[in-house]
Design a protein around this nucleic acid. Structure first.
Lengths: 131, 131
DNA sequence: CAGGTTATATGTAAATCACATATATATGAT
DNA sequence: ATCATATATATGTGATTTACATATAACCTG
């Protein structure tokens, strides 16, 4: 019930190599602002992006980031409800976040180039939000 | 020797969920302009994007698109050298290309939001190309 | 004929993705 | 009391994707 693949035109799936995602830098940016636990991060991602990530993969991703040393975690048992594993970004994590940003700027440039090329060939399908 | 992972900061790989790619819509857009064979498409992708796709995966992707009915192919034996499988986009392929564009516009918007958020938090790392 | 270019294709280990499922604590409803 | 729901973390798994290696074959050049 979580992360169903978005279906842009209601009729066609964008099968194959997916562009959407980049969960890891988004997690790092969220954690750069303040420490948080998994459930909180899941909510934040879902808000940005109507379909975030399913809990299973989110927690696995966080553990992966921890294994790589980009974040560190500790248990928070001071709150009512089940214990929370609270994550913090590390200095290595900050470095990776900055590296990701460079990559993401490159991807955005390539998407722009693709869209310009597309719109030159299909002017009837130009974006309406175009200035 | 083909598609080595780009290493944005020379020191850090953007490991995990990759953003770059979207080979399928780029192939469809190229084929929307004119029919072409695999090797030609590989060159075109490499030109846009210094590291295109390795031949193995490119040919497999093309066969996949054909299986889904987005392109069709026929052998061209009129030229010297090895025979070429020439691909053409189909009407279904055009429909998928248009669907991909909607998805890619959404991804670009989300990348923009991410970068705006990042730059608000790290103003010292703002893009220099910013107007 | 040896070596390089053009051209297409298969093999494969590792990573990723989407989805299902398990576990446990607390709260609110009946 | 018990049942459902929300909160919170975690494992299992089949299918797909990725990166890279390798195979095959026609043609050209020296």
């Amino acid at each position: 019930m979580f992360n169903r693949c978005s279906n842009p035109s209601e009729n066609y799936h964008c099968r194959g190599r997916r562009v959407h995602g980049f969960i890891q830098p988004r997690l790092l940016l969220l954690l750069a602002k303040k420490p948080a636990h998994g459930y909180e991060l899941m909510d934040a991602l879902s808000e940005e992006d109507n379909a975030g990530l399913d809990p299973g993969n989110l927690y696995r991703t966080l553990r992966g980031l921890e294994e790589e040393g980009l974040v560190s975690s500790s248990w928070d048992t001071n709150n009512p409800g089940p214990a929370r594993r609270v994550y913090q970004i590390t200095s290595v994590g900050f470095e990776h976040l900055h590296a990701w940003v460079i990559e993401i700027r490159n991807v955005r440039r390539r998407l722009d180039e693709f869209l310009v090329d597309y719109e030159a060939n299909f002017p009837e399908n130009r974006s309406e939000e175009h200035v």
